[in-house]
């Protein structure tokens, strides 16, 4: 499979001539078309944010008009009374714990698979590779019964454990590829200095795979933050719901309070967009690399 080398996915091949001559008519047309197309992406989001400030009547009657008043308290209501704040905290906990577990467990396993020879390593690696291909439908039914049996449902573990497991195959695959590409002298030198396995892992492996870890972290964190099916099935307690399921509960609870609903949607989307705009290069790269394996 294709692997991207993260170091030189940067400058696109730009039209050198275009720069010198200034704006040509064809350039103008190009930008007009692209801007209109980009509007397709921003218009719904803009409409969403604007509608948070409108009354139900305004949303129905004048969908395109600016709000007549800017009542910011609606966001506080959605956040506190509507429970969006609670859902965000839950999402944060679940995402953080599973991402850290993926990074820790994944890098340890990748280190063993890449740099140590042991019986059964081929089989174990094959099983993890299989995990890259298995769709969630192939296991969630029995997983649900198992978690019931273990009393894990309606606890945060019911999400943290599967999210970790779902992220591990990719993490091991990517990090192993990183480690494989490193010269073996690095490790042998450390060994000659008398470093044990744990020490090598800690002071050689971890610093070296940092860039790969960032990719894994972005991919895993976004996957956990956005996951819906398992969260829908495993969490019924409103105190523990994550954003996707919580927002759905919110949207049925306040189904006719449209501006509150739009406010909730705005609260959960805008920070994600801001984070993305700030780190767009790294995030886009992490996501595409993660998906391409």
């Amino acid at each position: 499979m294709t692997t991207f080398d993260s170091t030189h996915v940067s400058s696109p091949d730009v039209h050198q001539a275009g720069r010198k001559k200034g704006l040509k008519p064809s350039d103008l047309l190009f930008h007009v078309v692209m801007t209109v197309y980009a509007m397709l992406f921003f218009l719904p989001l803009l409409w969403m944010a604007m509608s948070s400030f409108k009354t139900n009547g305004e949303i129905f009657q004048t969908p395109f008009a600016l709000p007549t008043s800017w009542d910011w308290s609606v966001f506080a209501t959605a956040w506190a009374d509507g429970g969006i704040g609670r859902y965000a905290i839950n999402s944060f906990i679940v995402t953080a714990v599973s991402t850290i577990a993926i990074l820790g467990f994944g890098s340890m396993a990748a280190f063993a698979f890449s740099r140590m020879r042991f019986r059964g390593s081929g089989l174990l690696l094959t099983l993890f590779t299989l995990g890259l291909l298995l769709p969630i439908q192939s296991y969630f039914i029995a997983q649900n019964s198992l978690f019931e049996y273990l009393h894990l449902k309606d606890t945060r573990w019911a999400l943290i454990i599967p999210y970790t497991a779902m992220g591990l195959p990719l993490a091991i695959w990517l990090l192993k590829a990183y480690l494989d590409s490193l010269p073996k002298e690095l490790f042998e030198a450390a060994r000659i200095d008398g470093a044990g396995d744990l020490r090598i892992y800690w002071s050689v492996v971890l610093p070296l795979v940092r860039s790969g870890m960032a990719t894994v972290a972005i991919f895993s964190a976004l996957a956990a933050w956005n996951e819906f099916l398992l969260a829908l099935l495993y969490i019924q307690n409103d105190e523990l719901k994550t954003i996707p399921v919580g927002l759905l509960a919110f949207s049925t609870k306040y189904i006719t309070d449209y501006h509150l609903l739009f406010a909730a949607l705005t609260i959960v989307t805008i920070p994600m967009i801001v984070i993305y705009v700030l780190f767009h290069r790294r995030i886009a790269q992490g996501l595409t690399e993660g998906s391409l394996k």
Binding site: E148, H151, L152, K153, D154, L232, Q236, D238, T252, K253
Partner: peptide, 22 residues
């Protein structure tokens, strides 16, 4: 209390709750 939207409650919610840990 655990209050749920009635469509979710009557289909996915209640069965999951009954067979769940809490």
């Amino acid at each position: 209390y655990n209050f749920q939207n009635d469509d979710i409650y009557s289909t996915v919610g209640l069965p999951s709750l009954l067979s769940g840990g809490n």
